[in-house]
């Protein structure tokens, strides 16, 4: 089962900081993140990829759903 986190409405750089903390706790698995700006989508993606996660982004009504998963199953 994946975990979910909603960082919409948070000001920069809190979305990426919040997701980073969550990923450090999880260590592996799948995290679904809701973000409302392109900047946060890009920052979270960059951080996650650079710390060894895979990211898939989907745009939904001007907002974004990021599926972050660990590379090792």
């Amino acid at each position: 089962m994946s975990e979910k986190i909603d960082v919409r409405g948070l000001s920069c750089p809190l979305p990426v900081v919040t997701v980073r903390k969550k990923l450090l706790e999880m260590k592996n698995g799948v995290l679904e993140v809701l973000v409302d700006t392109g900047t946060s989508r890009d920052n979270i993606t960059r951080m996650a990829v650079n710390t060894g996660w895979k990211v898939e982004a989907k745009e939904e009504d001007g907002e974004y759903r990021l599926i972050i998963s660990s590379k090792k199953k």
Binding site: C12, P13, D42, M47
Partner: peptide, 12 residues
């Protein structure tokens, strides 16, 4: 810091 996502909205 950039690789850790510390890019401001202003820069983008």
């Amino acid at each position: 810091y950039i690789n850790m996502g510390m890019v401001s909205k202003g820069a983008m």
